[in-house]
Design a protein around this nucleic acid. Structure first.
Length: 502
DNA sequence: CGGTAGCAAGCTACCTTGCTACCGGTGCTGTAGT
């Protein structure tokens, strides 16, 4: 049957969106495929449709539980009942049932962590997996080295499943990210399908403000002026909260904070309210965004700079999905890069911590494997965070060719230093981009190994020139009345306090 | 790095100033025993 007919039959669409057909054809031709498609172009269809052509199960690796639930619901909506999200939301009874009846399902969603559990893997190995999908595959590169190490083991898991046909999906992939994906998944041959990452309707605007106070007042000013809805990204939960209540209390906008510290219920509620237009502004940390499909976001402001260009691009890419004019604003004040550096450093164990820990290590090789598990108190005593501890545990489990304690210690330190170097490098690159005096868009395209676009659009970036007023809310269109006087009073207060504190 | 909470001293009678220590983002998970 023609692919278009299948599309119509199962999903009710007449035509494919850009890239979808290429990806599906590539897979049906038996090729491992890495697809870089812009957000909002229906990436999920790329594995949903092949389900109707391939025998056997489709396993989809998904980074977030909420994302899995969404996708399960989406498939159900299309009338597909053979769908399951195999995760910790299932209680013991249900999980038992699901595991005993896995063959009844066609689409199985799992987290990388789930795959690492032998019981789960054993059950999955009994299936005949026809397609292994890694959704949001840039997570391999972004998280696999430290934050979520199971992401770097997907190749192993894939091997245990008999190296099935594989699809990696992402919206953002530099050459480096692509290499990490290929290496981690251990793909020998593969087809690459890419489309440009450029989003011509999003203008770039970087503004340098002299200090903290000016940044705060400038942000308030911007939120007042700009056409909403919009997202403001922060690198601190507390500041996001503070700013959200400030904006809401002063009647500037209907704003809420969103971050990983909130419980699941609240997060879902806030996200839904924003999507349905009951909120104008989300003050968020990097926790917000994956799986948020809102068409009409008009601005994304960065109050703090992100840790890497890939994250930045993903975050601003949530604006203007409807193709309408949107703006990405980054507020920079001198020294801002210190916060991400600090975050990067605190994630990894320090040299001192490593030295301290190794002084407790047994000298005998065969004792080392379970040493850390047996001595959990060392984690607390040495002040290791959960992530630091896991990085160490993970490193120690790696087989070394020649064993010696010194060897292991040096290896670990080298690993940590390498990671830190990479992370600092990314932060440095972003700073360079902020400080640069060439076209913002051109530099980003260059970073992603793309040719610069010909024929610059009218509103490109602050360097090329931009008509800022075009992004202002127009009278009458504003979804929520802005009390002009209130914020001016507030601004005056901030400035007054500042004068007094001098 | 740069902000801030918390405390103690300083100055004057209830508030200001100064120091220090600490914090800052992303998420998944079988499992123990009463």
């Amino acid at each position: 049957m023609e692919l278009e007919n299948l599309l119509n039959k199962y999903f009710g669409y007449k035509t494919f969106k850009t890239g979808q057909k290429e990806v599906i054809s590539s897979l049906l031709g038996g090729n491992h495929t890495i697809a870089m498609l812009p957000t909002g172009t229906g990436k999920s269809l790329c594995y949903q449709l092949p389900g109707y052509c391939l025998d056997g199960q489709i396993i989809i690796i998904s980074p977030l539980l909420s994302l899995m639930q969404d996708q399960v619901e989406q498939l159900m909506k299309f009338g597909e009942k053979r769908v399951i999200a195999l995760n910790s939301f299932l209680d013991a009874e249900k999980r038992g049932y699901v595991l005993r009846n896995l063959t009844k399902y066609k689409y199985i969603f799992v987290s990388p962590e789930m795959l690492s559990l032998p019981i789960i893997m054993k059950r999955l190995q009994a299936l005949s997996v026809s397609l292994f999908v890694v959704d949001e595959a840039h997570c391999i590169s972004q998280w696999g080295f430290d934050f979520r190490p199971e992401y770097s083991k997907l190749g192993e898991y894939r091997d245990q499943l008999g190296n099935p046909l594989t699809l990696a999906l992402t919206a953002t992939a530099t050459k480096k990210v692509r290499e990490d994906i290929i290496q981690s998944l251990d793909l020998q041959n593969y087809t690459k399908i890419e489309s440009t990452i450029d989003r011509p309707n999003i203008a770039f605007y970087i503004e340098e403000v002299p200090n903290y106070y000016d940044k705060q007042s400038r942000l308030i000013e911007l939120v007042c002026q700009l056409q909403k809805p919009g997202i403001i990204y922060f690198s601190s939960k507390k500041i996001a909260e503070q700013m959200a209540s400030l904006l809401a209390d002063k009647g500037i906008s209907r704003a809420m904070a969103y971050h990983g510290g909130l419980d699941q219920e609240q997060r879902i509620l806030i996200q839904q309210q924003f999507i349905h237009g009951q909120l104008d502004v989300i003050c968020a940390t990097s926790a917000f965004g994956m799986g948020v499909n809102k068409e009409n976001i008009r601005f994304v402001i960065h109050y703090h700079m992100p840790m890497q260009m890939e994250s930045y691009l993903q975050e601003i890419g949530r604006a203007g999905r409807d193709g309408e004019k949107s703006i990405a604003i980054l507020l920079y004040s001198p020294g801002d890069e210190q916060l991400p550096v600090q975050l990067a450093e605190s994630e990894l164990p320090s040299e001192q911590q490593i030295d301290w820990l190794f002084s407790y290590f047994p000298k005998e090789e065969k004792l080392i494997d379970h040493f850390l598990e047996m001595n959990q108190h060392l984690r607390e005593d040495g002040g290791f965070s959960e992530i630091q501890w896991r990085i160490i545990q993970d490193f120690i489990k790696k087989p070394l060719e020649i064993y010696s304690l010194e060897h292991l210690k040096k290896g670990l330190k080298d690993f940590v230093n390498d990671r830190l170097k990479v992370k600092k490098g990314s932060i440095h690159y972003l700073k360079k981009w902020i400080k640069s005096e060439s076209c913002r868009r051109e530099l980003i395209l260059d970073y992603f190994d793309e040719e610069p676009v010909k024929g610059r659009n009218q509103n490109c970036c602050d360097v090329c020139g931009i008509q800022f007023e075009q992004y202002h809310a127009q009278a009458g269109i504003q979804s929520y009345p802005v009390k002009d006087e209130t914020w001016k009073d507030y601004l005056a207060n901030i400035l007054l306090n500042r004068e007094m504190s001098k």
